[in-house]
């Protein structure tokens, strides 16, 4: 871990100013410190934002929920409104990491966590995300946990969050504050696909701080988060599906679906959802949706299995959701 200057921010604007001058935000630190110890990340300055007043979960005027960026993963998963009306989010959070980590990890930090790609983590490996232009050792390496959708020839990293997958399915929006003022954007627009600049993961500008996540009113239908992983707990997703599905008179009337473990960002493809609307739940219906989801999927050897596994996981999630929604 490289030496760094440490400062604690008293206000959001103070934090933004320091970050604009080059400091890295420190919130829960569960991923940042992990990476700093390996010098995968080596900021010269940290600005500690943990004491900023961003710890509240509040109802919005639109009957949605505003989640402060520093609300811990535990507090969010346990929140009465989230449990009652956004169970997919609660479940996704509870499926991620451990209580110890969720007690420290924050909402904003979770959205911005870095990939678990082993070559990104190994400073002695080529990685375009860590060291642009060095190549991608994962492409022909051990890429079991890496992406089959949305990747590029330069990077096949996956985004490891569970929480963000559920939020994507719920149509969450992200609120930021920066030196040039604040903005609100769709969670899907926060992320950038790797293309030829995998080192740039979001649209956030220097000094721009996520201050809140806004959930729209709870959607109709059944909600679930299905996560497939290599051990029963304390493991990242191979494939996960966050789903909200409504069924009326034997027909699917609405479907919101997002996917984890498959792509460099929490993945959503509205064509998959459209294909389900008006259909009677059946394996054929589910597989048709999977066909759309996976039309452009590309494996790299070790991770080829994720393509059929995604189909099966979607099948399982939709079967369960439709049974419960009916």
């Amino acid at each position: 871990m490289r030496p760094f200057d440490y400062a604690r921010a008293d206000t959001t604007s103070d934090a933004a100013t320091r970050a604009a001058a080059g400091a890295t935000f420190l919130a829960g630190g569960t991923n940042l410190l992990d990476l700093m110890k390996l010098e995968v990340m080596a900021p010269e300055a940290l600005v500690d934002v943990t004491r900023l007043d961003l710890h509240e979960v509040e109802a919005t005027d639109e009957s949605g929920l505003r989640i402060g960026a520093l609300v811990t993963n535990s507090d969010l998963a346990n929140h009465a409104t989230v449990r009652a009306h956004y169970p997919v989010l609660s479940r996704a959070l509870l499926s991620g990491a451990t209580v110890q980590l969720r007690n420290k990890a924050t909402t904003g930090g979770n959205l911005l966590q870095r990939t678990r790609c082993p070559y990104f983590y190994d400073t002695a490996a080529a990685c375009n995300k860590r060291d642009p232009g060095t190549g991608c050792a994962a492409m022909e390496g051990r890429n079991r946990i890496l992406a089959v959708l949305g990747a590029s020839d330069h990077c096949i990293a996956t985004h490891p969050s569970d929480m963000a997958v559920a939020m994507r399915a719920l149509g969450a929006r992200v609120v930021t504050e920066g030196p040039d003022g604040g903005r609100e954007l769709d969670l899907g627009d926060l992320y950038r696909l790797p293309g030829d600049t995998p080192n740039i993961e979001t649209v956030l500008s220097d000094g721009e701080l996520i201050t809140a996540v806004i959930l729209p009113p709870p959607p109709a239908g059944a909600q679930s988060y299905v996560k497939v992983r290599d051990r029963a707990s304390y493991a990242f997703a191979l494939v996960s599906v966050a789903g909200v599905v409504a069924v009326e008179d034997g027909r699917i009337t609405s479907a919101n679906l997002a996917f984890g473990g498959l792509a460099p960002m929490p993945w959503r493809n509205e064509a998959v959802e459209t294909a389900l609307i008006g259909k009677a739940p059946s394996t054929e219906t589910f597989d048709a949706a999977a066909d759309i989801l996976l039309a452009d999927a590309k494996g790299h050897g070790d991770n080829d299995f994720k393509i059929p596994l995604a189909r099966r996981t979607l099948r399982r999630a939709l079967r369960e959701l439709c049974e419960r929604a009916a």
Partner: peptide, 29 residues
């Protein structure tokens, strides 16, 4: 493990359990 991957360093901070390896002392003043 020093990376939040084993739990051996679990302590309570303000009554809640965390991995003390992934917490800067400075941040817990």
């Amino acid at each position: 493990c020093d990376h939040g991957q084993c739990g051996a360093c679990t302590i309570l901070v303000n009554g809640r359990r965390i991995n003390s390896c992934l917490a800067l002392a400075a941040s817990h003043d």
